[in-house]
Design a protein around this nucleic acid. Structure first.
Length: 655
RNA sequence: GCCCGAGUAGCUCAACGGCUAGAGCACCGCUCUUGUAAAGCGGGGGUUGUGGGUUCGAUUCCCACCUCGGGCUCCA
């Protein structure tokens, strides 16, 4: 006879349960919300289904839908329902893997006769899933042996590959040699580690999102499977909030806004991944670049210019041709050699450092260039400004003596964050990428020194960071900086990378105080990363409503009637003479219409002038996202907007 | 590059294989003269992405290419 089971709850209290008690028994015993909503139970750190027995003496906690772990279970279980629906609706279909992912889940299928899913199919599959949910089918776990598994999945070759360990799937592959399955009906069983929700009735709040192709085992040489993505949440409210967030993101899409606000375009005549900047986009870009130059000048950088083309010998020396030839535009044969468009500015900056004798007194030597580079991105990877074939890096290369490394990185970090803040980004995430023991150049000593310098800089600034082990490039460790935008999305922008390789390849050296030649360490630093991409991120961050200092047009002045136009014109002249980008809109349409058009252009200020304003030299001020103020003296307005522009206020993010 | 989907006026979208390819916004002209998010009338604007094919007839069906979108792979 087995005896009672004692478990320890998260608050430290003990609970005595009947023999062979399960998580469900515990939940029932606790009652209330626990009995109703618990999805799984964690016992001594191991996730268990609610119907699995609890080990005696274990520390247990119930997992609810609102938690990260709960959502993961919910999404994983919903993926099973998707698989059941597809296998039911498409005879001969087979399935491979279906894990939970951020915000949802997917499942990969292989349909007979190269069939594919359409959007209409998604609706049908979704209805079938809802039927399954309504049936409240239990998830029944079994441990089986390989013979049985072979029989069970005889028609499903991808599952057999997972069983063989050829395909590594952490959600379904055998763990410690134990093969587990989850069965929902006589017909549907999936290879899976679990755990799962008690029954499909827990899975009400999901939506299938899209179909996509995906290579089996992520290998582009293997079969292309049909993937269905879905999202799933604990409540209807959460699901709707997520869908609204997606709508909000779509509204801010820089490709859409760039067209609507006439910022730039991607003419197909140019070819994929190449943009032309229209006047309104170009002025914003110019302001960004001007500000960047100003800050670099203050920061002790020296400006350089280098050409777009170089002899292939340069890229052989730098190693780019060996490692990245696939990403470079094809060579051009010239009468005196073979030339390439440059994919990077660093080799040319190394030539500048290497020209003549360098003294330790010149270090740190900071070179800066807005350098345009060209990379042959594969056609399917292009994405607006975010992934583009021709772009400009705000690229700097710093040459330092080893003993200067720590201080230089620390001040570099200050510099980068300060510039990012000026553009309205103040929520950062940092990643420190360390040596890949399989792939690196340079001594352990120098790697440690550089990694310590990077880590020290982060810690000196009191910044939280995550370490990405073995994620560094072969030439040195790095810090990557992500920013969060106004709707909480992360974008990787800046990077600070140590490089022990290029100084070697280019045989760079300086003469130190001891009279000996020493090798400098090189730092690569991109702040915006790519001007194009940073601009795209800014458009999405502000939803096209640029802060006043960056707005293509800062003020429009509207007369109430046509006979106020000349007064409006005079105000515009006064604004322009104060360095403000202003324009007059003639009164050939009703005032409301003209205001509406200005609002759609997301202008920071619209001024309206009528009889009283002509008399008193005032204007009605209609600010973006604020209330209309009447009878504001023009001098006051000029002073106010001038101050706002001067301090580069990013202000509330108003739409 | 691979899978799926889409390309019609500057933009957003209509048009069973069949009459001169339509509408709103935008643009141009005229009228209206307006106090804070859409006044009225008229006009111009298209080789339906490009090239082939099927057909009496193609925006519509088929093929190739180009560009775009969603993914996969890749991203110095």
């Amino acid at each position: 006879m087995s005896s009672d089971v004692t478990v320890v709850l998260p608050d430290g209290s003990e609970r005595v349960l009947s023999p062979d008690a399960t998580g469900a028994d515990l939940a029932a015993d606790l009652g209330g919300r626990a009995a109703k909503d618990a999805l799984i139970v964690v016992a001594d750190g191991i996730q268990l289904d609610l119907n699995q027995p609890l080990p005696d003496g274990s520390h247990v906690s119930l997992v609810f839908p609102a938690s990260d772990a709960g959502l993961e279970v919910l999404r994983h279980s919903t993926a099973h329902v998707l698989a059941q629906a597809v296998l039911d609706l498409y005879p001969g279909a087979t399935f491979s893997i279906g894990p939970p992912i951020e915000d949802g889940f997917y499942y990969d299928f292989d349909l007979p006769n190269n069939q594919t899913f359409s959007d209409e199919d998604l609706e049908q599959i979704s209805s079938k899933m809802k039927e399954i949910v309504n049936r409240k089918q239990p998830f029944i776990r079994s441990e089986i042996d390989r013979t049985e598994a072979d029989k069970l999945f005889a028609a499903h070759p991808y599952k057999l590959e997972i069983l063989d360990g050829e395909a590594d799937d952490p959600t379904s592959g055998p763990e410690d040699g134990v093969i587990t399955t989850y069965r929902n009906t006589d017909d549907f069983v999936d290879l899976c580690r679990g755990p799962h929700v008690p029954d499909t009735g827990y899975l009400a709040h999901f939506q299938l999102m899209r179909v996509a192709g995906a290579y089996w085992r992520g290998d582009e040489n293997r079969q292309m499977l049909q993937r269905i993505y879905g999202t799933a949440w604990a409540t209807k409210k959460d699901l709707n909030a997520h869908l609204e967030q997606l709508e909000e993101a779509a509204k801010r899409d820089h490709r859409k806004l760039a067209t609507e606000l006439d910022l730039l375009s991607f003419p197909s005549e140019l070819g994929g991944g190449l943009a032309v900047w229209h006047p309104k986009g170009a002025i914003v870009r110019k302001l960004m670049e001007d500000y960047s130059r100003e800050r670099h000048e203050e920061g002790g950088y020296q400006f350089v210019y280098t050409p777009h083309l170089a002899n292939q010998r340069l890229f052989q020396t730098s190693g780019h041709l060996d490692f990245y030839a696939d990403g470079m535009y094809p060579p051009m044969e010239m009468d005196n050699g073979t030339y390439y468009l440059k994919p990077m500015n660093c080799p040319m900056h190394c030539l500048i450092f290497g020209h003549g004798q360098r003294s330790y007194k010149e270090l740190p030597l900071r070179l800066f260039e807005l350098g345009t580079v060209y990379r042959y991105e594969r056609s399917g990877t292009l994405h607006g400004l975010m992934r583009i074939r021709g772009f400009t890096q705000d690229d700097s290369h710093l040459y330092v003596a080893a003993e200067q490394l720590a201080d230089e990185i620390a001040s570099l970090l200050d510099f980068v964050l300060s510039v990012l803040r000026a553009f309205g980004f103040d929520d950062f995430t940092f990643h420190l990428s360390t040596k890949d023991p399989e792939k690196y150049v340079g001594s352990d000593e120098i790697w440690n020194q550089a990694t310590d310098a990077l880590r020290g800089a982060l810690e000196r600034h009191g910044l939280d960071y995550a370490v990405k082990e073995a994620d560094a490039a072969f030439y040195g460790p790095k810090i990557d900086i992500d920013v969060k935008d106004a709707i909480g999305r992360s974008w990787q922008l800046s990077t600070i990378q140590c490089d022990f390789n290029l100084p070697e390849q280019f045989d760079l050296h300086y003469v130190a105080a001891d009279g000996e030649r020493h090798r400098p360490i090189m730092l690569h630093r991109a702040l915006f990363g790519s001007i194009e991409r940073f601009f795209g991120v800014m458009v999405e961050h502000y939803g096209g409503a640029f802060p006043t200092w960056l707005s293509p047009v800062q003020v429009q002045v509207l007369g109430v009637r046509a006979d106020h136009d000349s007064f409006a014109d005079k105000i515009v002249e006064r604004l322009i003479s104060n360095g403000i980008r202003a324009e007059m809109v003639e009164a050939d349409e009703p005032l409301g219409t003209r205001i509406r058009k200005g609002k759609l252009e997301k202008l920071p200020y619209i001024l309206v002038v009528g009889d009283a304003d002509v008399e008193h030299d005032t204007a009605g001020v209609n600010p973006r996202g604020g209330d209309v103020e009447r009878d504001v003296p023009i001098v006051d307005f000029v002073q106010r907007i001038t101050a706002e522009i001067a301090e580069k206020a990013t202000g509330p993010n108003v739409q």
